[in-house]
Every structure is written in structure tokens, then in C-alpha cells.
């Protein structure tokens, strides 16, 4: 299959180093303490954060830090074939764990001992890169909930097809079976908190691909910061000060 034409265009008209259009919206779920919708092209994810609140299951309570829980799910209508997937299948469990670990890393849990923070993310539309989109949405929702964090966490994926590193794979490119590197970073601290890869890549190419994904993360971080700033201004305005 040809994923990058000799003219340097991908199947959806992007160039290899280009990301899909991103869009974010804060406050999509009014009941939640913080919520956000994050879109990367046709991938659309909603995230809701509850907490910090009392720990539901006492035995899980920790006296020195907050408990972070995460639940990832895919809406039945998120894919074309409308499959009814059982809740808690292996893939969802794995992604839940990945998101929880990534977010736990940047939440200042020691400031909220004996409490619990719940992150719910649901994929509304899936078109590749759901993992990254979920992390980005969760970051926004956590920020919206006012939970103290070290930094924003942003994530982006990159792949390697037709001997070209490609940023932000869509579903078609993702299902090509090539290497798919998902990177999550703390942009201000310039630290990597998540690094996953499917398939294999020679080490020197991995570096290039990872670099590309990191650039993508930084671009997303800039966008998220803008959105947050905008949101804060709105809040300020609404308060009428």
C-alpha cells in the first residue's frame, strides 16, 4: 500500500509532518467537576473528572496521597461497524491503565491525601490516535476541575510507513500494521511521561519518529494552553469583575 504518494501527500491530503485539525472545548458535562471534549480530526473524545472527593471504597484510601482512577470506554457508535463491545475488555483496561499512570504522574496527589479523583474518558468517534486524544482531553478536564498539576500532559502519536515518519496517524494509517509510537510529554518540564510502540523500528529511526511525535505534543500543548487561557478569560468575564 502507498501511504505517502511520491508527491509527498498522505491519503487524506496531509503532508507527513502535519497534524490533523485539533479542536477542544471545555465544560461539556455540567455535572462533572471538570470536563472537556477534544478532537483530532475525526477522532472525538469526551472526558469528565470528578474529585477530589471522598474515597468510595475505604480500603483503597491512602493516607499520604490521592487515589486516581480512570475509566476508558468506547461508545458503540464510535466506529463504523457499531460493535457491541463488552465493558472492560483487554484493550480498554490497558488504555485505562495507561491514562491513569500518565495522569497520576503529573497530578500533585500528595496535596490531596485520603481523597479520590475519577477520570472518565469516552471515545465518541474513533479515527486513529484515540489514546493520545484521551490523554489530551483528560488533561483539559483535570485543568478545568482545578486539580493541581505539575504541568499539562499532552500526547501525540507518530508512525513510520513507506520509509517516512508520519505525524498523527489516522485510522487507515494506523491499521497498516506499521510501527506506531505514542508519546506523552510534560511540555514545560520537557519530560517524557508516556512512550509506547506497536511493532518494531530500528533504533535510529525510532529517535526520529519519537522526535516528530514530541513536536506534535508541543504543538498540542500550545493549543491547549490557548484554550485554557481563553476559558479563564471567559470565567473572569462572567464573574463580572
Amino acid at each position: 500500500m502507498e501511504y505517502v504518494s511520491p508527491e509527498g501527500l498522505r491519503s487524506d491530503g496531509r503532508r507527513p509532518m502535519e497534524m490533523r485539525q485539533i479542536r477542544a472545548e471545555i465544560g461539556a458535562v455540567s455535572k462533572a467537576d471538570g470536563s472537556a471534549i477534544f478532537e483530532m480530526g475525526n477522532t472525538k473524545v469526551i472526558a469528565a473528572v470528578y474529585g477530589p472527593r471522598e474515597v468510595q471504597n475505604r480500603s483503597q484510601q491512602m493516607s499520604d496521597k490521592a487515589l486516581v482512577r480512570c475509566e476508558y470506554s468506547m461508545a458503540n457508535f464510535s466506529t463504523g461497524d457499531r460493535m457491541r463491545k463488552p465493558k472492560g475488555d483487554r484493550r480498554s483496561t490497558e488504555i485505562s491503565l495507561v491514562i491513569r499512570q500518565t495522569m497520576e504522574e503529573c497530578i500533585l496527589t500528595h496535596l490531596m491525601p485520603r481523597s479520590q479523583i475519577d477520570i472518565y474518558v469516552q471515545v465518541l468517534q474513533a479515527d486513529g490516535g484515540t489514546r493520545s486524544a484521551c490523554i489530551n482531553a483528560a488533561t483539559l478536564a483535570l485543568a478545568d476541575a482545578g486539580i493541581p498539576m505539575l504541568d499539562l500532559v499532552t500526547s501525540c502519536s507518530a508512525g513510520y510507513l513507506n520509509s517516512t515518519p508520519l505525524l498523527d496517524l489516522n485510522y487507515v494509517e494506523d491499521s497498516a500494521g506499521g510501527p506506531d509510537v505514542t508519546v506523552g510529554i510534560l511540555p514545560k518540564l520537557d519530560k517524557v511521561t508516556l512512550l509506547q510502540m506497536d511493532s518494531k523500528l530500528p533504533i535510529d529511526i525510532l529517535e526520529n519518529v519519537m522526535q516528530l511525535a514530541t513536536e506534535g505534543c508541543k504543538a498540542i500543548a500550545n493549543y491547549i494552553r490557548e484554550i485554557l487561557l481563553e476559558n479563564t478569560k471567559q470565567l473572569e468575564y462572567r464573574r463580572g469583575s
Partner: peptide, 22 residues
């Protein structure tokens, strides 16, 4: 957005939506 209908190997008919950047 481009959208089209496709038949899978199993014989199911699925609507596919693909992005198309101009």
C-alpha cells in the same frame, strides 16, 4: 469530510468517513 459506503469481507455494509484536507 468524504463519506462513502463500503462492503466488508464479511458482507456487512459499513459507512466510512474519511477526512480529506484541501
Amino acid at each position: 469530510n468524504k463519506s462513502f459506503v463500503k462492503k466488508t469481507k464479511g458482507g456487512k455494509v459499513i459507512r466510512q468517513v474519511r477526512e480529506h484536507y484541501l
